[in-house]
Nucleic acid binder design. Structure first.
Lengths: 187, 187
DNA sequence: AGGCTATGTTAACAATGCTCACATACGTGC
DNA sequence: GCACGTATGTGAGCATTGTTAACATAGCCT
């Protein structure tokens, strides 16, 4: 226990968790570029060098966040209740896009090129795990790998285009309905 | 004219162009994060502050590069020879993806979130111009806006997934053939 | 209690984007 | 042809950032 005065405890308790939590919030608010180690340390009330006891580098922290993102993504995918392959596939597509919109900067980080450039095998594993079920469900329906990749591409592309504001949302649009409509379309 | 000795001329001649050219090369080699103003200045043989006579900031330089990317993209799209809407549409899809693979980091920059965050109306204009014909061609075929967006999403998603190495290219794969196959598939 | 290790702090380094005061070339009006 | 204003490049320096090294403190184990 610390002294009876409210002196801040020298040891934080669970700094790693606190850093990750604060980083996730800060990431979503300011984007990856705005997530500085010093700001992060200050937000948690700790010295600028403290995070290095828990993360080798800023990149390593970002990788951790991305892995967490993939886990969250995987959990959401696994929680879908639909039964028939067709229903399941379309529910997954819809959930995929909504996840991207709800966690814009986290989603961007998950697919960030910078992280892939380094070794980082943990990230690739988390990503592969996340897409395994997706490929499984979409492949078994009709036509194997090509069909699965085509479906994946459409869903991912829609997510990215919406995220970047590239697809203009018009005044009367219900975004969620538009997503379902686009994904249901076979041009 | 400078003196007869080979003293480097104080004024570069066309520094802006030289900076842009060097930046494009450096961008493709090292990625956006690796494109530093000082490195760039050194590569062109000029002082670290010189680029600021031609670009307000690093972001402004990146925006210029992205706009150039969209122009290049638009030219490539316009140069396609196909005639019937169906042929034209599929040729555009193929060209879209190949452009992304050939200009990986430039393509990423064109869709970079960081640039959109700032005002930067020039970038949005260049992007809209680039996609105008795409939307036109794909919309007139069958079903209006939704069909156009669905086609766009699939093409863009395939480009991004390939770019990020997310779609595993297997040993026997011919990448270009795989692209055509995926884009031709209506799941 | 004593010591080992984990965890945090302070001070500093190198690199980066950016700015300011100054130097030099260019071009335009007389 | 020449002075002068403007555009363009230089050099030094500032604030910030990621990162490291030396030191301090807390918690744990015997």
């Amino acid at each position: 226990m610390s002294t009876s005065t409210n002196s801040p405890p020298y040891h934080h308790g669970d700094l790693r968790r606190a850093l990750v939590d604060a980083a996730l919030v800060m990431l979503e608010r300011e984007g990856e570029a705005g997530l500085g180690l010093r700001d992060l340390a200050r937000a948690v009330g700790v010295s600028p060098a403290a995070p290095y006891r828990h993360f080798d580098s800023r990149i390593a922290l970002l990788e951790t966040l991305a892995v967490i993102g993939f886990q969250k993504f995987t959990r959401m995918m696994a929680s879908l209740q639909e039964t028939t392959p067709d229903q399941k596939l379309s529910a997954m597509g819809r959930a995929y896009v909504l996840f991207a919109l709800d966690n814009a900067n986290l989603f961007r980080l998950m697919f960030s090129a910078q992280l892939k450039r380094e070794g980082r095998p943990g990230l690739k594993m988390a990503a592969d795990a996340a897409f395994e079920t997706l490929q499984l469900v979409s492949g078994e329906g009709s036509g194997g790998r090509v069909a699965a990749l085509a479906a994946w591409a459409k869903v991912h592309g829609l997510a990215v285009l919406l995220l970047d504001g590239q697809i203009a949302i018009r005044a009367g649009d219900d975004t969620e309905a538009l997503i379902v409509e686009i994904l249901g379309r076979n041009p």
